[in-house]
Design a protein around this nucleic acid. Structure first.
Length: 188
DNA sequence: CGTCTTTGACCTGCGC
DNA sequence: GCGCAGGTCAAAGACG
C-alpha cells in the first residue's frame, strides 16, 4: 500500500503491449486509430474511460498528466480515512493510462503478463460488464480494464493503467527463438 | 493447498 | 446534500 509512488523505473514501457498481440491475437485484427473508433463506437463511455486522451497509431494515450486525473491509487495515509479496512484508497494519481481496442472473440488478451481479476461492474450504456484486472507480480501495481462493446460485440477495449516494473517473462520466451534466428541470419 | 474468479458491499468523485 | 456511476475490497467458492 505504499509503493505506488516509489515505483522504480520501468523495465518495459506500457507501449510494449501491442507487440505482444501475436501471442493470441493476430495483428491484422487490430482496429484502426481512434478517430474511426469513435465513429463506430457511439455507445462507448469514452468520457469516463478515456479522460484526457491523445492518439498514436492504433493505441490511445490516456491522461498521463496529473492534471487530468483518470486513475486512482491507494494512499499511504489519509485523514479522510473513515474505514480501517478500505478507507485509504481512491486518490487521483499521475499514473499513465493507455487504451486500445482489438477485434477478438476473447475478452482476455494474452499480453504476456499474469493478471488477477479483482472486480467486475456493469457500466452504463453497455450490456457487457467491465472487468478489472491487476498484475499478479507482487511489486507491480499495473491494472487493466476490459470492456466489450455492446454495439459491436467483436470489439474489446482494453485500458492499461500504470507501468510494469518487471520484465515480461512470456514475451522474452516468445522472442527468444526469433532473436536467435535474427542473430543467426545477420551473421551472414 | 495455492491460485484465481465471482460477487455483493462499500467507498469516492462528480453532477445536479 | 443527494443520488448515481465507477472503482475496489474481500469473503466464499471453484479449480487444478
Amino acid at each position: 500500500m505504499d509503493d505506488q509512488e516509489s515505483t522504480p523505473a520501468p523495465l518495459l514501457s506500457p507501449l510494449n503491449v501491442p507487440f505482444l498481440f501475436p501471442t493470441s491475437v493476430p495483428s491484422s485484427s487490430l482496429n484502426p486509430p481512434l478517430e474511426s473508433t469513435q465513429n463506430i463506437l457511439p455507445d462507448m463511455d469514452w468520457v469516463s474511460l478515456l479522460s484526457g486522451l491523445g492518439q498514436e497509431n492504433n493505441k490511445v494515450m490516456i491522461g498521463s498528466g496529473s492534471e487530468n486525473g483518470g486513475g486512482y491509487q491507494i494512499q499511504e495515509d489519509d485523514k479522510g480515512n473513515k474505514d480501517k479496512r478500505r478507507g485509504n484508497r481512491m486518490k487521483k494519481t499521475s499514473r499513465p493510462r493507455f487504451a486500445f481496442q482489438t477485434r477478438s472473440e476473447d475478452d482476455i488478451l494474452d499480453d504476456g503478463y499474469r493478471w488477477r481479476k479483482y472486480g467486475q461492474k456493469s457500466v452504463k450504456n453497455n450490456i457487457y460488464p467491465r472487468s478489472y484486472y491487476r498484475c499478479t507480480h507482487h511489486t507491480c501495481n499495473v491494472k487493466k480494464q476490459i470492456q466489450r462493446l455492446s454495439k459491436d460485440t467483436n470489439i474489446v477495449v482494453t485500458t492499461y493503467e500504470g507501468i510494469h516494473n518487471h520484465p515480461c517473462e512470456k514475451l522474452m520466451e516468445t522472442l527468444a527463438p526469433l532473436l536467435r534466428q535474427i542473430h543467426f541470419l545477420s551473421s551472414f
